[in-house]
Simulated scan of single mutants.
Amino acid sequence: MIAMNRDRELLAAFLATLGAEQPRIPEALLKAVSEVPRRMFVPVDVDDPYEDRPAPIDCGETMPGALAAVRLAALLDVEPEHRVLEIGTGSGYVTALLARTALHVTTFDRYRRLVERAAQRFKQLGITNVSSFFEDGREGYVAGSPFHRVIAHAAFPAPPRQFLEQLSPQAVMICAIGPGDGEQTLVRLSKVGSRFEREEIGRVRYQPLAFGKAEVL
Score class of each variant (00 low, 15 high):
residue 105 V to H: 05
residue 106 T to A: 07
residue 107 T to S: 15
residue 108 F to R: 03
residue 109 D to Y: 14
residue 110 R to L: 07
residue 110 R to C: 05
residue 110 R to D: 03
residue 111 Y to T: 02
residue 111 Y to A: 01
residue 112 R to S: 09
residue 113 R to L: 12
residue 113 R to Y: 07
residue 113 R to A: 12
residue 113 R to E: 11
residue 114 L to C: 00
residue 115 V to A: 04
residue 115 V to W: 06
residue 115 V to S: 05
residue 116 E to Q: 11
residue 116 E to W: 07
residue 118 A to E: 10
residue 118 A to L: 07
residue 119 A to Y: 02
residue 119 A to W: 06
residue 120 Q to D: 14
residue 120 Q to E: 15
residue 120 Q to K: 10
residue 122 F to A: 06
residue 122 F to V: 03
residue 123 K to H: 12
residue 125 L to M: 13
residue 126 G to S: 10
residue 126 G to D: 02
residue 126 G to Y: 02
residue 127 I to T: 00
residue 127 I to M: 03
residue 127 I to F: 04
residue 128 T to L: 11
residue 128 T to H: 11
residue 128 T to Q: 11
residue 129 N to F: 00
residue 129 N to V: 00
residue 132 S to W: 13
residue 132 S to K: 07
residue 132 S to V: 13
residue 133 F to Y: 13
residue 134 F to L: 09
residue 135 E to N: 10
residue 135 E to S: 12
residue 136 D to G: 02
residue 136 D to I: 01
residue 137 G to C: 09
residue 138 R to A: 13
residue 138 R to G: 12
residue 139 E to K: 15
residue 139 E to V: 13
residue 140 G to S: 07
residue 141 Y to T: 09
residue 141 Y to V: 12
residue 142 V to E: 15
residue 142 V to L: 15
residue 144 G to Y: 02
residue 145 S to R: 05
residue 145 S to E: 10
residue 145 S to V: 03
residue 146 P to A: 02
residue 146 P to I: 03
residue 147 F to V: 10
residue 148 H to R: 11
residue 149 R to H: 02
residue 149 R to D: 03
residue 149 R to F: 08
residue 149 R to N: 06
residue 150 V to I: 15
residue 151 I to Y: 11
residue 151 I to N: 02
residue 151 I to A: 10
residue 151 I to R: 02
residue 152 A to M: 09
residue 152 A to D: 05
residue 154 A to K: 04
residue 154 A to M: 06
residue 155 A to M: 06
residue 155 A to E: 02
residue 156 F to C: 00
residue 156 F to Q: 00
residue 158 A to G: 01
residue 159 P to D: 11
residue 161 R to P: 08
residue 161 R to E: 14
residue 162 Q to V: 14
